[in-house]
Measured scan of single mutants.
Amino acid sequence: MGFKLLSKLLVYLTASIMAIASPLAFSVDSSGEYPTVSEIPVGEVRLYQIADGVWSHIATQSFDGAVYPSNGLIVRDGDELLLIDTAWGAKNTAALLAEIEKQIGLPVTRAVSTHFHDDRVGGVDVLRAAGVATYASPSTRRLAEVEGNEIPTHSLEGLSSSGDAVRFGPVELFYPGAAHSTDNLIVYVPSASVLYGGCAIYELSRTSAGNVADADLAEWPTSIERIQQHYPEAQFVIPGHGLPGGLDLLKHTTNVVKAHTNRSVVE
């Protein structure tokens, strides 16, 4: 069995187990497998329904001669939608809004960016022009300005110390501490036991640490421990890039980060 097929099978099995364990909360999309990078042309966006009122959005972007996937989250909030992270750029984010209108038909009224990198804030200006209120932590807003990236308009308070959590509509926002970046936030959907790890969490097929220019490698494993301790009931975990899975993604990420750190020390 090929690795790609095995990865998709694991996603399907995880979703099936969740649907059985929580039949009222989960209505997993039966329309197909989780979209992969090879299936999404740059400039297009796919939506994948995880649970009743919960979707991931998947886009792709060219970077350094390669094409990478990027995940975000959409959560229903009454007759409105909360968006977590842009679709990595203005063109993708405009396509995301169009796809949401086509498939869901509810307005996106608020959006949260989970850290300051372009795959999370690139497209904020498109959201703002569409009347979406954009939010991020003060740290993310400051770092985005320093980096020359787009800056969300509103500040999220109460997320300055490791372990801080605040309720934001249908989700809980959690600051686990520094990891992929010093400002990275985690998003949890309690009604569906869905954990969105953003770039602080890796997919299972990833074996290298990737972009760690703004990471705190020493603190990252401790931050992941905080996530595990705060959300032990999480059933569906979405990484910032690639295929979702279960809580095993947290341990896998820790292993990859520690291996990278150990290699760096040896070198």
Results as ranks from 00 to 15, higher is better:
Met1Ala: 03
Ser160Glu: 13
Phe116Leu: 04
Arg110His: 09
Ile17Trp: 05
Glu147Tyr: 13
Ile17Gln: 05
Gly89Ser: 13
Asp77Gly: 09
Gly122Lys: 15
Lys4Gln: 15
Leu249Ala: 01
Glu39Cys: 08
Ala213Phe: 15
Leu195Phe: 04
Ala51Met: 14
Glu33Ser: 11
Pro23Met: 06
Glu233Phe: 13
Met18His: 07
Asp214Gln: 15
Gly65Gln: 11
Ser181Asp: 00
Val28Glu: 08
Gly78Ser: 10
Tyr12Asp: 14
Gly105Met: 11
Gly158Glu: 09
Leu217Val: 09
Ala90Glu: 11
Asp77Leu: 04
Gly240Pro: 02
Val108Gly: 02
Leu82Asn: 06
Val126Cys: 05
Gln228Trp: 13
Ala200Asn: 00
Ala87Asp: 00
Thr222Ile: 12
Val28Gly: 09
Glu99Gly: 13
Phe63Cys: 12
Leu24His: 07
Tyr68His: 07
Val132Thr: 12
Gly242Tyr: 01
His180Leu: 02
Arg110Tyr: 13
Ser208Asn: 15
Thr253Met: 01
Ser223Cys: 03
His241Asn: 01
Ala209Cys: 15
Gly65Leu: 10
Val194Tyr: 02
Gln61Cys: 06
Thr93Ser: 11
Phe174Lys: 00
Tyr12Cys: 07
Val54Gln: 03
Leu217Gly: 05
Ala178His: 12
Ala192Thr: 07
Ala95Trp: 06
Tyr175Arg: 01
Lys102Asn: 13
Ile84Ser: 01
Ile17Arg: 05
Phe3Gln: 05
Glu157Phe: 11
Asn262Leu: 06
Gln103Cys: 14
Val11Gly: 07
Asp64Phe: 12
Gly240His: 04
Lys258Val: 11
Ala144Phe: 03
Gly53Val: 14
Leu97Gln: 04
Ala133Arg: 13
Leu173Pro: 04
Leu81Gln: 01
Val212Phe: 09
Leu185Arg: 02
Gln103Gly: 13
Ser208Gln: 10
Ser208Asp: 10
Asp164Lys: 07
Gly245Val: 02
Ala133His: 11
Val112Gln: 03
Val121His: 01
Ala59His: 09
Glu203Trp: 02
Ser137Asp: 03
Leu97Arg: 01
Ser7Ala: 08
Asp248Tyr: 05
Glu172Leu: 05
Ala59Phe: 03
Ala200Met: 14
Gly177Met: 00
Ala21Met: 10
Trp55Gly: 00
Met18Gln: 06
Phe168Met: 15
Lys258Phe: 05
Thr60Cys: 14
Val112Thr: 03
Leu195Ile: 09
Gly148Met: 10
Phe116Cys: 03
Ala209Asn: 09
Tyr48Leu: 07
His241Gly: 00
Asp248Met: 14
Ile224Glu: 02
Ala259Ile: 05
Phe236Gln: 07
Leu185Trp: 02
Gly65Trp: 07
Tyr48Gly: 10
Ser161Lys: 11
Thr14Lys: 14
Ser155Leu: 08
Thr261Trp: 13
Ala25His: 14
Ser264Cys: 05
Arg226Pro: 04
Thr222Leu: 13
Pro176Thr: 01
Val265Tyr: 15
Val112Lys: 03
Arg110Lys: 08
Pro23Asp: 12
Asp119Gln: 00
Met1Lys: 04
Glu101Leu: 14
Ser27Ala: 08
Arg167Asn: 06
Glu145His: 15
Gln61Arg: 08
Ser113Gln: 05
Val67Pro: 08
Pro23Arg: 07
Pro138Lys: 14
Lys251Tyr: 15
Leu13Arg: 13
